[in-house]
């Protein structure tokens, strides 16, 4: 049990609880302060654990600023989505999360996934969200400026924050055990520490030589490796993903079409039940 970590988690939970939307919000600023303190305390804890590990000592330590920057933006963006009463702003906060997430992916040397994340999430899914939000909020508020009531009040905030606190608390305690490693280091990998800088990664000499474009002189890029992996090991899954996308396409059309009979072409589209 690591009490410093537990304290930071609890602080974050209280901060989140105070920030959740409700009728009157006198303590939002306090919540933001507590939440900010929790995140900063958590980062300090991470820094300490980096400082203590032997590899950091071997390589001279240092503060991995990009990680903390992106991490902070992601967490703050998530809190923003959860606590923002207006859906449009919440969607914009979510764009922030995806952008910072793409940054994280670049730090993890998954450049292709970073681009995919931005294109699919920020570019496609979020735009659709914003469209639907516009469509829906136009009618529901009837021109009102304020958000509707159900957006301004959180339901069961205490209970939900408690569950999430238990979940995050347990996971973090497990992730940072007092007695060292959590999962075994894979063979052929120097240590459980991960390189930050792309230039530092040693390219293994055992490149997959099956492909003519890949040789020791021209090591495969991550897209090539990913593509080979996708179309060999996950070929069947790829087919299934295609089928699922088709089902969703048909399903979305079927669900949202209006159920007016063909015989009443000029029908208003309202159904008999209403």
């Amino acid at each position: 049990m690591d009490y410093a970590l537990l304290a930071a988690t609890a602080l974050g939970a209280i901060g989140l609880f105070l920030m959740l939307p409700r009728d009157r919000m006198p303590l939002v600023r306090l919540g933001m302060l507590l939440g900010g303190m929790a995140v900063i305390g958590f980062f300090l804890y991470l820094l300490r654990s980096v400082g203590e590990s032997h590899l950091a000592a071997a390589t001279g330590g240092g503060v991995p600023i990009p990680f903390y920057l992106f991490g902070f933006i992601m967490i703050a963006g998530a809190v923003g989505v959860v606590c923002q009463p207006k859906p449009v702003y919440a969607a914009l906060y979510f764009v922030l999360i995806t952008l910072a997430g793409a940054g994280m992916f670049v730090l993890l040397l998954a450049q292709f996934m970073a681009i995919v994340l931005i294109i699919i999430y920020a570019g496609a899914i979020l735009v659709t969200y914003v469209f639907v939000i516009m469509l829906a909020s136009q009618g529901s508020t009837g021109g009102q400026v304020t958000a509707p009531d159900y957006d301004r009040k959180a339901s069961e905030p205490f209970f939900s924050v408690l569950i999430a606190f238990l979940l995050i608390g347990t996971t973090l305690q497990v992730l940072f055990p007092s007695d060292g490693k959590v999962i075994a280091t894979p063979s052929g990998h120097p240590d459980q520490l991960m390189a930050m800088n792309i230039g530092e990664v040693a390219v293994p000499t055992t490149a997959p030589a099956a492909d003519q474009y890949v040789s020791a002189a021209h090591p495969p890029t991550d897209i090539q490796v990913l593509g080979i992996n996708l179309y060999s090991q996950y070929a069947l899954s790829l087919e299934l993903a295609g089928i699922l996308l088709t089902i969703a396409l048909v399903g979305a059309v079927v669900i949202s079409r209006k159920g007016e009979p063909k015989t009443h072409i000029l029908g208003s589209g309202t159904l008999p039940t209403e």
């Binding site: 390219v203 090591p219 495969p220 991550d222």
Partner: peptide, 14 residues
């Protein structure tokens, strides 16, 4: 089921 090549380690170019 499906005879796959053993997964190669992720190799990253610069």
């Amino acid at each position: 089921h499906i005879d796959m090549p053993t997964p190669q380690p992720l190799v990253l170019g610069n």
